[in-house]
Computed example of a mutant assay.
Amino acid sequence: MASRVQSALGRGLVSVVLAAVAMFWLMPSFGLFIASLRTPQQNNTSGWWTALTQPAQLTLDNYQRLLSNEGMVNAFFNTVWITVPATLLVVVLASLAAYAFAWIEFPGRDALFIAVVALLVVPVQVALIPVAGLFGDLGIFGSRLSVILFHVAFGLPFAVFLLRNFFAGIPKELLEAARMDGAGEWRIFRSVILPLGLPAIASLGIFQFLWVWNDMLVALVFADSRAAPLTVALQSQARQFGANIDILATGAFLSLVVPLVVFFSFQKYFEQGVLAGSVK
């Protein structure tokens, strides 16, 4: 009986500590949300926590102004048009390449895979200038396409490495049974690899989405004012923080909400992908 009480108290203490850590971690996001619902004058004269005791301060006017700001709305859609293709292309191409590296025999497979893994150590900053020159020669510098291609190129090495290791852990007997039934490589990939590899693929999609959505460096270099995503637009607004706190706080919270929605929508698959292989 005493051991049960001690165990219950221990679990309760752990729960309290985790709840306190979660509240501390979420405090800036909660403060940003409250600030996005206050007027610029209120944000300049008092802290966001005053709205907890004076809920009359809260208003949706900032969001109405943000939606009427053509530059910010265009930046938001630019972020979507950049992030979605960059995520889908990396997931699709990496899945196909990872299957080939894991289960298809071809000359130079191991050497090519080592070369792909070696690309993981190449810093993004090293490639900015040469790739910018290449995109300039191709006539796509400053467009959304240039940002998408850069993210795809630098996202593929990690994606291939991650998925190849996961696919290699799939029992070989399943693939041999499918081949004995007359299935080709494409059917095996579609009917066996994809269903079993869905947790790892979903985890990769979440990582890639977050990386591209929150990126500012690549967009700042390759995108012009018409193709600039939300991070670049917010950075330009931050130069005049006091005058644009209403747009800045509202836009920043909008930029924060979308990745959270994506993460929680695929949380089940993300947990399965993270825990995959930990228990046999």
Rank of each mutant, 00 (worst) to 15 (best):
F33T: 02
L254R: 00
L138H: 02
A115E: 01
S265D: 00
V16I: 15
R4D: 14
I114N: 04
L89I: 15
L52N: 05
T83L: 01
N244F: 08
S191P: 04
I170K: 14
F135Y: 15
V261Q: 02
A228I: 08
S29F: 13
F30E: 01
V73K: 09
A97M: 08
F189W: 15
L66S: 07
L52C: 07
N44Y: 10
F166N: 12
T79Q: 11
F263Y: 11
V73G: 13
I140S: 06
F266V: 03
F150I: 03
A97P: 08
V16W: 15
Q6V: 14
V84T: 08
G133W: 13
F113C: 07
L275V: 12
A2Y: 10
S36V: 12
V262I: 14
L93V: 14
N214T: 11
L162G: 00
V21W: 12
R38H: 00
F253I: 10
V121D: 02
Q240M: 06
V126K: 01
V92K: 10
R38E: 01
V131R: 06
A178T: 11
A219Y: 03
Q64I: 14
Q272W: 01
D224P: 09
S203P: 09
D110W: 02
I188K: 05
V212Y: 09
T53H: 03
I140Q: 14
S36K: 09
S255K: 00
W103I: 00
T231Q: 14
L32F: 04
A86H: 04
L26V: 10
L196D: 07
P130G: 13
N78G: 09
L9M: 13
Y99P: 04
Q208W: 02
E176T: 13
W81H: 10
A228M: 09
L175D: 08
V192G: 12
V17G: 03
R38D: 08
N214I: 02
T45L: 09
L220D: 10
L58T: 00
L163D: 05
A233I: 09
F33Q: 02
N244T: 11
G31P: 07
P123Q: 07
Q272F: 01
Q267N: 12
G242I: 11
E185F: 12
V279S: 05
F30Q: 05
S225L: 11
R144K: 13
L145D: 06
E271K: 02
V124C: 02
D137A: 15
T250K: 05
A102K: 09
V17E: 09
F253Q: 06
F161W: 08
H151K: 00
V279C: 08
G31T: 04
A243L: 12
A200F: 06
D224V: 11
A22G: 12
V17I: 15
F77R: 03
